[in-house]
């Protein structure tokens, strides 16, 4: 008599596994709930990245600012004064700085996300947590860095507003967070794809570090998009970062109208890259310990 209900109970219990591990993961397994549970880890990683990078340096976080300032100065001399590339009539420093900080955000995210597996091999090999936390924290910590550099840019903008007449800021300033979000999505997706592939094919990590430098020239960082010859413009716009940098300048300098079509293209690219990125990343995280 007694056994019957017990059997039912144990049977119903077996259905309530909180964890089932099988060789093959579901194709798309993005568990928001689990990531939310590990949100503290996300912020501790974020904090670790900040606290430790500039330990035992004299200038510390000032390096966030020194890097773009020096790059801007070099670009101003080389591309502005020597090569005399057009800057849409803007002060070269403002022009280059605006391009550099947006491009650097993308480039830094991609490069540091791309070795997520390799760099954290010793942690990943010993303990489980949603692996996606690592690229997420990288993108977030670069976002903070971007924030600091953006403040620097605002400082220059403020300074130049006394020198020359800059157009007033319009409503499209509200687009700014979206631009950053798209850049974050693009770099996260792209970085995750690269990081998954590097676990098997290490060649990619060499390719990515100089490839991203070359990619800068295919992006309107050191030249305005409008100065590119008409027949090449479509190729430059094929790079989803182009529209973002161009729009960033448009918002602040009113050098033209926002190209919504190009922006939508960037958004689509970001979504597709993110989707593929998560897909590949999910597949890799299960077995990469055996191949790395």
């Amino acid at each position: 008599m007694n056994q019957y209900p017990q059997k039912i109970m144990s049977e119903s219990k077996t259905e309530t596994w909180s964890l089932v591990v099988t060789p093959k993961s579901r194709l798309f397994n993005f568990n928001i709930q689990e990531i939310w549970r590990y949100r503290d880890l996300l912020f501790l990683f974020l904090r670790r990245d900040f606290v430790t990078v500039y330990k035992q340096t004299i200038l510390g976080p000032l390096w966030f600012i020194i890097q773009p300032v020096l790059t801007t100065l070099i670009f101003t001399v080389i591309f502005g004064n020597v090569a005399r590339l057009p800057t849409n009539g803007l002060p070269p420093i403002l022009f280059y700085l605006s391009g550099i900080i947006v491009w650097n955000y993308f480039a830094d995210c991609v490069v540091s996300t791309s070795d997520a597996f390799k760099k954290n091999e010793n942690i990943f090999g010993k303990v489980y947590f949603p692996r996606v936390i690592v690229p997420l924290s990288t993108v977030l910590s670069n976002l903070v860095k971007f924030g600091v550099q953006f403040l620097l840019f605002l400082g220059f903008l403020f300074y130049y507003s006394f020198q020359i007449k800059l157009p007033p800021l319009g409503y499209d300033l509200l687009m700014l967070p979206f631009l950053v979000l798209i850049a974050a999505g693009l770099s996260l997706g792209f970085g995750m794809i690269i990081s998954s592939l590097t676990t098997k094919y290490r060649d990619l990590s060499f390719l990515i570090s100089f490839g991203i430098q070359l990619a800068m020239y295919a992006t309107p960082v050191i030249y305005p998009l409008s100065s590119a010859p008409e027949k090449y413009r479509i190729f430059i716009l094929a790079n989803p970062m182009s529209a973002l940098i161009d729009s960033f300048r448009t918002i602040f300098f009113r050098t033209g109208e926002l190209n919504y079509l190009a922006l939508i293209y960037s958004v689509v690219c970001a979504i597709v890259l993110l989707f593929i990125g998560l897909l590949v990343f999910n597949r890799t995280e299960k077995t990469f310990m055996d191949t790395i």
Binding site: F124, Y128, K286
Partner: peptide, 11 residues
């Protein structure tokens, strides 16, 4: 940390 090649594990 790593996935099995075959089989299931539930917890």
């Amino acid at each position: 940390v790593t996935a099995p090649t075959t089989g299931v594990f539930k917890a």
